[in-house]
């Protein structure tokens, strides 16, 4: 078992991206991005290699698309300004500023589910991430592969409202049994 071989196998299982990260800087060895449909295949690869499950959690990326657009606009404006300055310095007439790009609808923000796996024999922390749209946060369960994921998925459902399709018992674990709110969503107001 070594991390390099796992990387090949994960890439072969249909993961969108498998990136080796610098452990000393980040604390994990492999960063894997998968589509929700490919999640079970990727987790099965790790199961066959003898990995154990460390945790399942989520991240709410509310506002990410707006931030990305703002950054892109700022960058474009800075470039245009630099061009104009360069032209002015050269004594030329400043070119007409390009019209601002057509602003379409913002893409929908994402919820991310994050799975951590590690190996007992050799250090190789694999972080699998999968993104889904906030209005339909559905991802297949992995509790039939790792029974330990059962509680982790219930906890993630409590906090983020992510629905783990196929989970046998998706009821609140840490929150009250009648809880219908998800406190870690960024737009949660108590």
């Amino acid at each position: 078992m070594n991390c390099g071989a796992i990387k090949q196998k994960l890439a072969a299982s249909g993961a969108e991206a498998v990136i080796e990260t610098e452990y000393a800087r980040k604390g994990f060895a492999l960063n894997v991005q998968v589509a929700p449909e490919q999640l079970v295949a990727a987790v099965s690869v790790l199961d066959a290699e003898g990995f154990f499950i460390e945790a399942v959690t989520g991240v709410d990326w509310l506002g990410e698309q707006a931030t990305l657009r703002k950054e892109a606009e700022a960058k474009a404006a800075a470039e245009a300004k630099a061009k104009a300055d360069a032209a002015a310095a050269a004594g030329e007439e400043a070119p007409a500023a390009a019209p601002p790009a057509e602003q379409g609808e913002l893409a929908e923000d994402a919820l991310e589910a994050v799975y951590d796996f590690n190996h007992y024999d050799e250090f190789c922390r694999v972080t699998i991430r999968t993104r889904m749209v906030r209005s339909k946060p559905e991802v297949p369960t992995i509790s039939h592969i790792y029974p330990g994921a059962d509680w982790h998925e219930r906890e993630t459902h409590d906090f983020f409202g992510i629905i783990f399709v196929g989970h046998p018992y998706l009821v609140p674990l840490l929150l009250p049994e009648d809880a219908d709110y998800h406190p870690l969503l960024k737009d949660f107001r108590p």
């Binding site: 003898g50 990995f51 154990f52 499950i53 460390e54 945790a55 007992y120 790792y146 029974p147 330990g148």
Partner: peptide
């Protein structure tokens, strides 16, 4: 232990170093 992600003395009592 592996399927549930047990660590610490629980997994070390099951022969996992």
């Amino acid at each position: 232990c592996r399927k549930y992600g047990a660590t610490g003395p629980v997994c070390r009592g099951s022969g996992i170093n």
